[in-house]
């Protein structure tokens, strides 16, 4: 049905990557060539994925917009819909609607040094921007990535985290896990504590963070202490959504709709909202 914002594009899963025991990355290609051409997202935007029979879920687009042949969604198996999606195989059909939301403020980020702080599956929306920055390397300053997960097995995007990103020019990657583990000689500790320990200078820099709500809360405090200005601390919220287009009334924080006015918020904007996220 043309012009229907609730009508998903059919898409085919062309590749599935097991990231962790409960996260898979689905690479999909929209079936309709016209839709493929028109689907242009910005890093940080989301899509509504249809698993027909289970409904829809809001999932951030984790691939870089500079890579135009496909879309990637990294999905943690956590509920009914994601449980079924995790059983899908290459060649299966899903639905995709979007892209929705504001995305990261690229104009604001251009030319700046960037600090990424991620926890667990929270690296998925940041990955879109990290790879976009690497695809457009000259447009941005230095890149630091602080990322942690519960265990080594739970670290997402291991290929990029350990092989691709550390080799990119002007990129430093700091990885941590929550508890000591046999065979891991890297950092051990929670992400906010690691952030405090590394204490990157905040002046002039932009911080982009995503992770579990408690990690976001503590990391926001830490970044403020390190001298990042509230306008340059940016996070992305993912509230439950049913429509993605400001109608279903589910993702509001006060009078702000996260689907259309977010999901990316600066700390300055968040501070002006009621604490309902």
């Amino acid at each position: 049905m043309r012009g229907n914002p609730l009508w998903p594009y059919l898409a085919t899963i062309v590749k599935i990557v097991d990231e962790t025991p409960d996260v898979k990355t689905f690479r999909v290609v929209l079936d309709d060539p016209g839709a493929r051409e028109n689907f242009r997202h910005r890093p940080g935007q989301v899509a509504l994925l249809s698993v027909f029979g289970q409904g829809e879920a809001t999932i951030s687009i984790s691939s870089s917009p500079a890579r135009r042949d496909y879309l990637e969604f990294s999905v943690r198996r956590v509920g009914r819909l994601t449980g079924v999606l995790h059983q899908f195989e290459e060649g299966y059909k899903i639905g995709v609607r979007g892209p929705y939301g504001n995305g990261f403020p690229l104009e604001e980020l251009r030319g700046r040094d960037l600090l990424f702080v991620g926890g667990g599956i929270g690296l998925a929306p940041l990955r879109s921007l990290i790879n976009y920055v690497l695809d457009r390397r000259d447009d941005f300053g230095s890149v630091e990535i602080i990322y942690g997960a519960r265990s080594v097995a739970d670290l997402c995007f291991k290929e990029e985290l350990f092989k691709v990103w550390p080799k990119a020019p002007g990129v430093r990657v700091y990885t941590t896990i929550d508890r000591p583990e046999y065979g891991w000689d890297g950092h051990v500790g929670l992400v906010p504590a690691y952030l405090a320990e590394l204490a990157p200078a905040g002046a002039g820099k932009c911080a982009l963070i995503c992770g579990p709500p408690i990690m976001i809360r503590l990391a926001l405090q830490e970044l403020a202490r390190l001298g990042f200005s509230p306008e340059r601390i940016v996070t992305t919220l993912e509230l439950k959504m049913k429509c993605g287009i400001g109608k279903c009334g589910r993702c509001n924080i006060g009078s702000t709709m996260v689907c259309t006015e977010g999901p990316v918020f600066s700390l300055a904007r968040l501070q002006a909202l009621p604490p309902e996220y």
Partner: peptide, 29 residues
């Protein structure tokens, strides 16, 4: 406010329904 719910027939075909919902329900958010 609405919910979106899929219903599947035994043969795998099905329909997507938009239904009234309430922000007073715990599961809403």
């Amino acid at each position: 406010c609405f919910n979106v719910i899929d219903r599947t027939a035994p043969d795998g075909s099905g329909g997507r329904y938009r239904c009234w919902d309430s922000c007073l329900f715990e599961r809403f958010t």
